[in-house]
Write a protein that binds this DNA or RNA. Structure first.
Lengths: 224, 224
DNA sequence: TTACATATATCCAAGACGAACATATGTAAA
DNA sequence: TTTACATATGTTCGTCTTGGATATATGTAA
């Protein structure tokens, strides 16, 4: 920060947050998008975003955007990266700070998507698909999603718990890992690693209604 | 980003970059600080920072700040995190985007520090010391340094090459790892890991002038 | 010539991991 | 009622990585 400089004397960039709300849909990672109805990029899909108010923290802005634009209730968000290329928005200079939110199955089921909203599947190629058709994102939002997914992969051991039901089997946990990492994992090794990791607690209850041996249900153990 | 909203109609936060220039001094990590001469925090040490111009990318702003405020020539910088607490600056709302720069020994030797600049040692406790005396940082700059050092630790395998001379011995490389991680490392295991990592190339030359067996000098192998 | 500190190379044990296999247990089909 | 089946759960084994100890090599300096 400087002293000899009055920021009010010069044009200033605007600051916005863009929210990358990720969940697992049909065994694959998906991201919540909103269709734009105004230029630029009218008709394109975009991340829900909004400007940061003068008296509002960055996190609070991200939570507000999720509530207002996607009717997603209060939930933890995590900052991913800031994107500040001069021409990333053709209208004016906007610096976007990307925030990640992880949607549990309950949150996904509670979504009431309008025709201008969708959960777009994130393909193995990094592109986004809606009903199997590739879609183009507005602005640099494709890069923002890619960056967010890469970050999610590097922290999946912790993040996966936010993407499974409150009570989950080791199979479900592994499937979430595999969906995010986009690769299959060795089952015994995965079980060993998770159980020795210390973040799990068995409930003694078992899943039911499946045509095979029921698996024990686990919950995330609160960190000491 | 929104459509129904005119950001010019409302007060907007200012955007600044704060630079965390880290190097190894006397075998310990140190960060470049500048002493403030104006309130708030007059007399306190602070990170070099500056406002982002309307037609300037975030990275360019960080590079400019390093050049103008620390006479550090063009060098790669890496974004760390954005800090946006509403009251982090008592004067006005400023969102700070932290950038990290890694100072090689040559860069450190080329520094011509004024009395209002210093290279503060980062202690094991995370606090900063100048001439052995703990110093207080302005604003939330202490948290910014701590966050940056944590990030550096998680990427030290790549980052260490920017903190050693162009030609370096494996001992020097290990000492940089140990300084940043603040823990001693097993020597044979470190050598194995580095040599099998593929990022090194032996020069066939050896260091001299030491009262022990000379070690081979290595250079970082350009990634294919 | 010898002492010494470090470089470099091996060796071994412990732990992490992948893969294969064996047994257990529910539903559903025969 | 019995059998097939898919998965859960647990075990074993070989491989790879890593930490630690050890042995030899090689320069400066006493």
């Amino acid at each position: 920060m400087e002293q000899e400089y009055d920021p009010n004397a010069y044009d200033r960039p605007s600051v916005a947050v863009d929210c990358v709300a990720i969940g697992i849909v049909d065994g694959q990672p998906a991201v919540l998008l909103i269709r734009r109805d105004q230029p630029p990029f009218a008709g394109h899909w975009a991340l829900p975003g909004g400007f940061v108010a003068i008296d509002e923290s960055l996190e609070a802005a991200a939570v507000r955007v999720l509530r207002k634009k996607a009717r997603i209730g209060a939930m933890p968000v995590e900052q991913v990266h800031s994107f500040g290329t001069v021409d990333r928005d053709p209208r004016m200079r906007i610096i976007a700070i990307a925030y990640r939110a992880l949607l549990s199955p309950v949150r996904i089921a509670a979504l009431r998507l309008t025709v201008d909203q969708c959960l777009a599947r994130i393909g193995s190629d990094g592109r986004l698909y809606r009903d199997g058709q590739p879609i183009a994102l507005a602005f640099d939002h494709g890069a923002i999603v890619a960056h967010t997914l890469a970050r999610l992969r590097s922290t999946i051991d912790d993040a996966a718990f936010a993407l499974v039901p409150e009570r989950f089997t080791l199979r479900e946990l592994q499937q979430v890992h595999e969906a995010v990492l986009d690769q299959s994992l060795n089952k015994p090794a995965f079980r060993r690693r998770m159980l020795e990791r210390g973040g799990l607690r068995g409930t003694g209850d078992f899943e039911g209604g499946r045509a095979f041996r029921p698996a024990e249900l686990y919950v995330q153990r609160p960190k000491d």
